[in-house]
């Protein structure tokens, strides 16, 4: 019976981990192109979910239409955001972009509930609630669907950055804005593309997590929650985000299953951060991040 418990915790941890990776990849998209950390990524997820849930609940949109509205909203919103707030910062120190995203995060956290209401709303993307029972294994359907969506889109993004010309150009932009311009790369256009992609990923994350935990401002905390995932895997690596997500997911599940009964609960919430600090001590650039080696 004991190994079955371990098995179940691990599988569920892996599923949750993939769902973390879906949120975390939003950080990677921005970091890879602009070299900045977007502290508003969690708020993007929240606002995307709030829009979709609001459309479905308040205006009676069918789910597919509500998702389409949400997608359009995120694309337009992030496009405008890049134009108005972030583009003027091209060439400035990275820290000013980071500060802008922190301001943006606080603003979204205030504005979201103001416009769409603060109560927790359900989000139903048509995934059944009854648990999947497969032999001794006990799984939540939304976790399985969420992990599936995550695997699919992470594979697409991974391919995009490694193989496609646009993806490689985006990496070039991340490396040096000035050099990229000299290559004839329209840096502004790639910034816009990166932010739009981050918005689309946020929508996917919002749908999956909104279905799992309900939609309210608490969702914004996901941004902070996946931070250990991003740090663990390395800010510029998609494979890293997957591995980081899986490690964090499994650690959380094991902590909840084995440590919580002993100490009375709560270890699940801080184990990821303990792990993050340990990794930072050994590999400051994450497990898969690129170490910066200067040749002198």
């Amino acid at each position: 019976m004991e190994w079955q418990f371990l098995f179940e915790l691990t599988i569920n941890g892996l599923l949750t981990g993939m769902m973390y990776a879906l949120i975390a990849v939003g950080f990677v998209l921005i970091y890879k192109s602009t070299d900045a950390i977007n502290f508003a990524q969690g708020e993007f997820v929240m606002i995307a979910a709030i829009v979709v849930a609001g459309m479905a609940a308040n205006y009676g949109f069918p789910m597919v239409a509500a998702i389409a509205v949400g997608l359009l909203f995120m694309i337009v919103f992030n496009f405008a955001l890049e134009r108005v707030v972030l583009r003027p910062m091209i060439g400035r120190p990275v820290v000013s972009i980071i500060m802008a995203t922190i301001g943006l995060a606080l603003m979204l956290r205030g504005l979201g509930p103001l416009v769409f209401g603060a109560e927790t709303q359900p989000l139903n993307i048509g995934v059944p609630d009854e648990p999947l029972i497969w032999g001794p294994l006990f799984m939540t359907p939304i976790d399985v669907v969420g992990a599936g969506i995550s695997v699919m889109f992470l594979a697409i993004f991974g391919w995009f950055f490694m193989k496609s010309r646009k993806g490689v150009a985006m990496r070039a932009v991340a490396d040096s804005h000035m050099t990229s311009m000299a290559m004839g790369i329209n840096v502004e256009r790639y910034f816009a593309l990166a932010w739009i992609l981050a918005g689309v990923v946020a929508l996917l994350g919002g749908l999956v997590w909104g279905s799992a935990i309900g939609v309210d401002t608490q969702m914004a905390a996901l941004g902070l929650k996946v931070f250990p995932v991003v740090i663990l895997g390395g800010l510029d690596s998609i494979i890293g985000v997957v591995v980081g997500g899986l490690i964090i997911g499994v650690c959380e599940a094991l902590a909840a299953g084995y440590l919580d009964p002993i100490v009375g609960g709560g270890t699940k919430d801080f184990t990821p951060y303990v792990l993050m600090i340990l990794v930072l001590m050994i590999r400051p650039y994450g497990i898969f991040g690129k170490p910066i080696i200067e040749r002198i």
């Binding site: 040096s176 050099t179 690129k290």
Partner: peptide, 11 residues
């Protein structure tokens, strides 16, 4: 080309 080498180092 640039005075200080400006290659995309990771590539």
């Amino acid at each position: 080309t640039f005075q200080n080498i400006a290659l995309f180092r990771g590539m």
